[in-house]
Design a protein around this nucleic acid. Structure first.
Length: 365
DNA sequence: CTTCGGCTGACGG
DNA sequence: CTAACGCCGTCAGCCGAAG
């Protein structure tokens, strides 16, 4: 049944993307537990797991886990250093395939894309399913990678559907099936609910999405505040009106890194930040973007993050000496306020971004 | 009163 | 014996100051 009043949204999520890219480049890895690692360089195994293949997950290796811990749990797994330029290239190819087939797309991360297929599917879920299968097939044929696809009435439902069956899944949640699909799921599965909210909901005796939907909206607002309470109330019903639309520009750009040794020396930390700033400034220049605000981020030995920031009176390109001076004074100010801080990682962020004069947006063509 | 600058925290890939 | 720990991005909320 065609119902043009409703959108049909697809969410494509590549399966254990980085690990799958590595396996594609080296078929000997097929069927083996593979963990893609981001090494901090501090010592041989310091760092975190970025992506674990399904075989590695079966051994208990999870993304975000310290590498040392993963190796203790699963010494037999294969640990690889992340190769981001490889993943970026493959991502670009996959995005092109999707964009060639659908007019309304939105890249959500390096390995996820939303598609508004209302037009191509004429509002018909059966057509949408066929288009999704064809897209999966093309991605597999061209890139030798599998993905999981969710189809639903909006981005929220589509994303939760893509998560429902993986890897290589396809889950369709028709408009009228939304409640049936969501209700039994644990609250943590609702995109936007993390550990903290899960805990707070548990205190209310709420563990499933259906229970959120059944809760008093006044109570949700009381516990979680106006905005978040209303969001919970709607999201638990599968209500979400976010459009599928590419963003013109990022809101911020940042680089962060781990120092070889912990430091309490403002000059040393500022120099480290200044080096990272060069790469951010290069990225911004390349994108034709100027920035209004610079921030210094400091992660202390206890892993807590602190920031210091300053808004400039006018947009900066990055080559001005004043920016580096500002980085130094932000770091200095932090240490005046926190004289005994021990810094482990440090970074810089630029925000309040705007297109530089004479730079065309993609949409001007 | 609203807005802004600065900062923290939750969340997600 | 335990704890072990990356990097990038979005958004909301809070606070005090400014308009």
């Amino acid at each position: 049944m065609i119902d043009p009043r409703h959108r049909i949204i697809l969410h494509i999520d590549m399966d254990s993307f980085y690990a799958s890219c590595e396996r594609r480049e080296n078929p000997a890895l097929a069927g083996k537990p593979v963990a893609v690692c981001i090494f901090s360089g501090r010592d041989a195994d310091s760092g975190a797991i970025s992506t674990a293949s399904y075989e590695a997950r079966a051994l208990g290796v999870k993304s975000g886990m310290p590498i040392k811990l993963a190796k203790k749990i699963a010494p037999q797994a294969i640990y690889l250093k992340a190769n981001f330029s490889l993943y970026q290239g493959i991502s670009d190819s996959i995005m092109s395939i999707a964009r060639a087939r659908f007019k309304a797309t939105q890249q959500a991360s390096i390995d996820e894309i939303y598609i508004d297929a209302s037009f191509e599917a004429s509002g018909d879920y059966s057509i949408a399913e066929k288009l999704a299968r064809e897209l999966k097939a093309e991605i597999f044929e061209q890139e030798m990678l599998t993905c999981s696809v969710g189809i639903g009435r909006n981005k929220l439902v589509a994303k939760m559907a893509s998560d429902f069956q993986k890897p290589d899944g396809l889950t369709i949640v028709r408009f009228e099936d939304t409640e049936k699909f969501l209700s039994p799921l644990p609250v943590k599965k609702l995109v936007g609910i993390g550990p903290k909210t899960e805990e707070a909901l548990a205190k209310e005796g709420i563990t499933t999405i259906g229970q959120i939907a059944g809760a008093e909206s006044a109570r949700l607002v009381e516990v979680f505040g106006e905005s978040r309470g209303r969001w919970l109330f709607d999201a638990a019903r599968g209500i979400d009106n976010e459009p599928v639309a590419e963003r013109d520009m990022p809101a911020q750009m940042s680089r962060i890194g781990t120092m070889k040794k912990d430091s309490q020396d403002p000059a040393e930390i500022a120099a480290f930040c200044a080096g990272l700033f060069e790469t951010v400034a290069d990225d911004a220049r390349e994108a034709g973007i100027a920035f209004g605000t610079i921030s210094v981020m400091l992660i202390l030995a206890n892993l807590k993050m602190h920031t210091k920031s300053r808004k400039f009176p006018r947009p900066m390109s990055g080559s001005e000496p004043a920016v580096k001076t500002e980085i130094e004074s932000l770091v200095a100010r932090f240490f005046e306020e926190n004289p005994y801080a021990v810094c482990r990682r440090a970074g810089v962020r630029v925000s309040d971004l705007e297109k530089k004069e004479g730079q065309k947006s993609l949409f001007d063509y």
